[in-house]
């Protein structure tokens, strides 16, 4: 725990939006690999993959947040995270960079684009390497992945 509440954030894009998650929950970043599909699961659960012998679910993050499913391309990757003792992989469009932020820089989340409460825990402006914009950086939304409750069996409405 650093004294000035600094933490490292992994930033990535979903479509045109930029997001970040706390690096402490990141296990690894993997190349996209077609997962083994599961029957009778919501469409945002793409299937399961083999992570060093453990079977983990692969979630289409954009879909889970209610947007267009991510298209797969050469830069697509899976962020493998550990959430409350469970592991899961989230498909993102592109990983940008790892940045350090200070808690004081984080602004409260605005009116939500996302229906579920708590999923976006805040906004922060960061400077990303390779960024074309010269005006102080990019605004990223910090995601609280645990708030997505991936492992709760959702009542299948159909």
């Amino acid at each position: 725990m650093s004294q000035n509440n600094e933490r490292k954030i992994v930033t990535f894009s979903l479509g045109h939006r930029m997001f970040g998650i706390d690096m402490s929950m990141l296990i690894e970043i993997r190349e996209w690999e077609e997962p083994t599909p599961l029957p009778k699961v919501p469409s945002h659960i793409k299937g399961v993959s083999n992570l060093r012998g453990t079977v983990i679910p692969i979630v289409g993050l954009a879909e889970r947040l209610g947007w267009e499913p991510s298209a797969i391309h050469s830069r697509s990757c899976i962020l493998v995270v550990s959430l409350a003792g469970q592991q899961a992989g989230f498909l993102v469009d592109e990983v940008a960079d790892i940045v350090s932020i200070n808690d004081t820089q984080v602004q409260p989340a605005p009116d939500v684009e996302i229906a579920e409460p708590g999923v976006i825990s805040g906004l922060v402006q960061v400077a990303l390497r390779g960024d074309a914009s010269g005006d102080g950086g990019t605004m990223i939304s910090l995601l609280d992945l645990e708030a997505l409750h991936i492992t709760r069996q959702l009542d299948l409405a159909a």
């Binding site: 083994t36 599961l38 029957p39 009778k40 699961v41 659960i45 399961v48 012998g53 453990t54 079977v55 983990i56 679910p57 469970q86 592991q87 899961a88 991936i150 492992t151 709760r152 069996q153």
Partner: peptide, 16 residues
């Protein structure tokens, strides 16, 4: 390998 460790049990599957 149990599915419910990282996901949840799925009817019809006894694991992977």
């Amino acid at each position: 390998k149990s599915l419910d460790r990282n996901l949840h049990p799925i009817r019809g599957l006894g694991g992977a």
